[in-house]
Design a protein around this nucleic acid. Structure first.
Length: 442
RNA sequence: GGAAGGAUGGGUGAGUCUGGCUGAAACCGCUCGACUCGAAAUCGAGUAGGCAGUUUUGUCUCGGGGGUUCGAAUCCCUCUCCUUCCGCCA
């Protein structure tokens, strides 16, 4: 109950026109399409309620506008009479009643609008037609494999065993200082983490043309709503007490919201940003999963890529951003595969997502290390990010994309496991040696 | 934390004291046209958005929310953000 109230209080300001979420008109005109999308995502449909409210809204609006028109006309008349020094009291009296009626209609309309927004903000993006239909991750489609998982001729260890044996990961200290799912990295481990951050940022800025930003790690409720974390996923985030501020779950949030409520210049597009940030996730509902190691932490580091592009280019850009992410894994010579997420596994805001999964020997499988998504205009709508396609044309929503480039902690885990040696040491991947200054962690 | 000032269209910025004829001057930018071999300069025209209906229309929006009033960019309350000064701090 209280949570609900809280979310409600910090929903985005109802700006002029309410440029938020999926478009009402679009939903109205494409009820079937939206309905189908919800079904493919394994979600219940709130559209009956939506249609009912929408109908009520339009009826009330019509009545209300008629009254407002009357008021405007008569107000002009009153002004005119007063200027001429004539008496207007009989009209004023009549208008008092009209104004009261308008006030009542306004109240009803506001209530309906709130109900509509609450529904709309919880409707996810519509999957792109190329997205495979499926229930869960089992139905994701593998589209590419790179590298050969290494064959070990000795008893290989998990990354947490390696980390503790080399004294570069300290789980006990993490849980003492903070709690479960927090870890200290020490010595070469700390350095490895830092090296990866620098390495990834260097690759993306120098080779892939991203401009680097260093964002705030705390964002407000409007921003969280803009990228789609709120209102549905409040429980997945850490919230500051008594403030409408949240620890960011990814740099996507602050970087995408940099341009919230802005009209971008066509000549500045596309905009590419890359950003390092710490990421904070409550991992609600993940009890018991990946409890060992650093695969699933409440705090982890990530280098993120974010793009703002013209709509017609966004699917081309999705391929590019995915390649940009792949490239850092290739440079590190870590075997990985690329999968297209199916409708049931797709995240709330995304129209299409490629996951990069790195080979993890100890798990004997591929694990997600990057997620590259095209949100089309979903986030742009919520966040009000537009541009003018032609000088005379009216504004249009841009398309946003992002991709992990890539998650640092999981890369550390992958390096420790894939590059481990029989004597317990870990070879440093060649690309990282300039950053690490050593060839072997021992 | 204390004090003062401010938030207006793509940008700069008038209007706020003295409420109505201001959805908003002027300038810049941008678009089209004229001039030109072409460009610059100059001149002319155009140039916010949401919602509802869509043939002419109506309505709402001057940071957000609320109030006063027949009527608010304009008066009052409140919140947010920005600027300047003081204090504090890495």
């Amino acid at each position: 109950m209280r949570v609900f109230y809280f979310i409600y209080m910090f929903l985005p300001n109802e700006k002029q026109g309410g440029i938020k979420m999926l478009d009402r008109k679009f939903i109205r005109d494409n009820i079937d399409k939206v309905e189908k999308a919800l079904k493919n995502r394994q979600m219940e449909s709130p559209l009956d309620k939506f249609e009912e409210l929408e109908e009520q809204r339009r009826d009330l609006l019509y009545e209300n506008e008629k009254l407002r028109h009357k008021r405007n006309v008569n107000s002009d008349k009153i002004g005119q009479l007063k200027r001429e020094g004539k008496d207007a009291s009989h009209i004023i009296e009549e208008m008092q009643e009209v104004s009261n009626k308008i006030k009542k209609y306004d109240e009803q309309l506001n209530k309906i609008e709130e109900g509509l927004d609450d529904i709309l903000l919880r409707i996810p993006n519509i999957p792109h037609e190329s997205v495979p239909i499926g229930a869960d991750e089992e139905d994701n489609r593998e589209i590419k494999k790179w590298g050969q998982p290494r064959e070990f001729d000795f008893d290989y260890k998990t990354h947490w065993e390696i980390g503790e044996d080399l004294d570069i990961l300290d789980f006990e200290k993490g849980s003492k200082v903070t709690g479960a799912r927090f870890t200290f990295m020490k010595n070469a481990g700390a350095r490895l983490e830092r090296s990866l951050i620098n390495f990834f940022l260097d690759v993306h800025t120098k080779e892939h043309n991203y401009s680097e930003v260093f964002p705030p790690f705390i964002a407000n409720a409007d921003s969280m709503t803009g990228t789609g974390q709120l209102p549905k996923f409040e429980n997945d985030m850490f919230k500051l007490e008594d403030l409408p501020y949240y620890l960011i779950p990814t740099a996507e949030v602050p970087v995408t919201n940099m341009y919230r409520e802005e009209i971008l210049n066509k000549k500045d597009l596309p905009i590419y940003h890359t950003a390092y940030s710490a990421c904070f996730r409550a991992e609600a509902g993940a009890h018991g999963r990946d409890t060992r190691g650093i695969i699933r932490q409440h705090q982890f580091n990530k280098v993120e890529m974010v793009k703002f592009v013209e709509p017609e280019n966004s699917y081309k850009e999705l391929e590019i951003i995915t390649k940009d992410a792949e490239e850092v894994l290739q440079k590190l010579e870590l075997p990985y595969r690329v999968v297209t997420l199916c409708t049931g596994d797709l995240t709330f805001s995304s129209a299409k997502t490629y996951d990069l999964e790195v080979w993890m020997p100890a798990y004997d499988t591929y694990r997600e290390i990057s997620s590259c998504s095209n949100f089309e205009d979903f986030q742009a709508r919520r966040a009000g990010i537009r541009y003018r396609p032609e000088p005379e044309a009216s504004t249009e929503y841009i398309h946003t994309l992002n991709g992990s480039g890539v998650a640092i902690g999981r890369t550390v885990a992958a390096i420790l496991e894939n590059y481990q040696n029989e004597d317990g040491t870990v070879t440093v991947p060649e690309a990282l040696r300039p950053y690490m200054g050593i060839e072997v962690i021992r």
